[in-house]
Design a protein around this nucleic acid. Structure first.
Length: 471
RNA sequence: GGUGACGUACCCAAGUGGCUAAGGGGGAGGUCUGCAAAACCUUUAUUCGCCGGUUCGAAUCCGGCCGUCACCUCCA
């Protein structure tokens, strides 16, 4: 009945109890709009979508906040290279992000705060860290968080600050800070930043990366809220720093449950620009894969498991979904009055029970999906000796609609169906073919069948007559 | 160097002390059909990377080894 989630903070599965009964407040790290989001990014957004949809399924009222990072080092660099204003540079990436969310049938967050619209909130937060002695300003005007002043630093990833490797990227950092591990809250304006800067009480400059999530999450969800999610790569340093900034400023616990999504791999390796193996939603739909199959492929592996994405996986996903589609098609052909059979009801309840038990257990998607396929097979078996009634049909459809509130791939999918021919004209062609078949004119009958197939209409010959299906 | 995850059939993937090792894809057989197609049904791992140990009993717990992957300052 009750849900458990694996909490990165404690490294354990814990019963989920929101701060306020029946209400869940969650924050998800959203995109940095310096490029199009790739399928690896979307794996995380799909996970968050599953989480949110399941919470709603369980009756919670959910407020989700997803940030849009529209100012950061990469964006500024690209803007100045292209000599474009920030807004103009990020706009197309924002648009494509929202378009892809729609394509993948992802439930939208209630709030999508943009970093550039919340500079004031960040400045206030930084100010309070300065006041509390948790941050310091260097001669060049930058402001850093002093991690030695926050003893709990490092607990999210079990990292001992002493053991942090001082790698190349740190050395490249030209800012003068007290400790290499201190991170920037505020970056003073430099000529390379061009037009990108804000004049604030902290000086002329721009915020560091981590501060936006602290400022915006607390603004919309409160100083302490229920769930914070992101990819595993965000655990350190991003989420670690968020905790330090937020708890340092408020003295209160920040997020209560931290859920992290594993990476998606392509050919067994992390997708990255340097490996040249980036894959985007658009690239997959251009290859002819349906958005529903992409969604299915992204959600069908448990979120804490690495997902080895491939075109083979997409092919398999298309076929798995087709099995469900076929079942619905067959169900749609049924027109027989009568109430639901006891044995059908039993299978439906069995599916719903297994689905919930699985999802309650840290969103264990595999058994949850298995419950759907198992019901399909069992109902098909029943159908071979007991005629299914309209009552059965209703009961089955209601249950599938229920689980699809979470899955979003059964009814809500974007199946492309051929619509060239009207039902009437297809029926006429079928009648024509029936006539030919009656006359044993197989050649003529097969020509009609082939023509319809080319138009995306598949004929199905049954005992009761020929029916058709759009592909 | 530090931290962590993983290794289950041809492929993807559940199961984490004991009933028949889920489910999907693929393969093989069958039902239906004028022939097909589609669909549906059945079937497909005496065995869980390897080697030891604990236990009445291990894929599951412990130890070692091998292999893959990730994180360690701005990547979901």
């Amino acid at each position: 009945m009750s849900m458990v989630f694996y909490n990165t903070l404690t490294r354990k599965k814990e019963a989920f109890i929101p701060l306020e009964k029946g209400v869940v407040k969650m924050y998800t790290c959203g995109p940095t709009v310096y490029n199009h989001a790739h399928i690896g990014n979307f794996r995380a957004y799909i996970f968050e979508d599953q989480l949110k949809r399941y919470l709603k399924y369980k009756g919670f009222s959910v407020t989700q906040v997803m940030n849009i990072t529209d100012v950061d080092d990469k964006i500024i660099r690209n803007c100045s290279e292209k000599k474009m204003p920030l807004e103009e540079y990020t706009r197309p990436f924002k648009e494509s992000f929202f378009k892809d969310l729609d394509i993948l049938n992802i439930d939208k967050a209630e709030v999508f705060p943009a970093a550039t619209k919340h500079i004031g909130d960040m400045v206030k937060l930084i100010q309070s860290l300065l006041d509390k002695g948790l941050a310091y300003r260097t001669d060049d005007g930058n402001i850093f968080f002093k991690i030695t002043a926050f003893p709990r630093y490092g607990r999210l990833q079990n990292l001992n600050p002493e053991n942090l490797r001082s790698g190349g990227r740190v050395e490249n950092d030209e800012y003068e800070k007290e400790s290499v591990h201190d991170f920037a809250l505020w970056k003073a304006w430099k000529p390379e930043d061009g037009e990108v800067c804000w004049n604030t009480p902290l000086g002329k400059g721009r915020p560091g990366w981590h501060i936006e999530c602290s400022a915006m999450s607390m603004k919309y969800l409160g100083e302490t809220f229920d769930i914070h999610t992101g990819g595993v790569d965000n655990i350190f340093p991003h989420h670690e720093n968020e905790i330090a900034q937020s708890e340092g400023a408020t003295g209160k616990p920040f997020a209560r449950y931290w859920l992290h999504c594993e990476h998606l791999l392509w050919d067994g390796e992390k997708m990255s620009k340097s490996l040249g193996n980036m894959m985007y939603i658009r690239g997959l739909t251009d290859k002819g894969y349906s958005p529903t199959a992409i969604r299915y492929a992204l959600l069908s592996t448990h979120y804490r498991q690495k997902l080895n994405f491939s075109l083979t996986l997409l092919d398999q996903s298309e076929k798995s979904l087709k099995r469900v589609d076929d079942f619905l098609f067959e169900l749609d052909q049924i027109h027989k009055e009568g109430p639901v059979h006891e044995m059908v009801k039993k299978e439906v309840d069995r599916m719903l029970g297994k689905f919930e038990d699985a999802m309650d257990d840290d969103l264990n998607i595999s058994p949850a999906l298995a419950s759907v396929f198992e019901m399909i097979r069992r109902i098909n078996r029943i159908k071979t000796d007991v005629p299914i009634t309209d009552g059965d049909k209703e009961s089955i459809l209601a249950a599938l609609k229920k689980v699809d509130q979470v899955l979003g791939v059964i009814f809500s999918g974007n199946h492309q169906k051929s619509a060239e021919l009207s039902d009437e004209s297809i029926e006429a062609r079928i009648a024509e073919r029936d006539e030919a078949r009656k006359n044993r004119d197989w050649a003529r009958a097969d020509v009609i069948r082939d023509e319809l197939l080319k138009a995306g209409i598949e004929l199905i010959d049954r005992k009761e007559g020929t029916t058709f299906r759009r592909k």
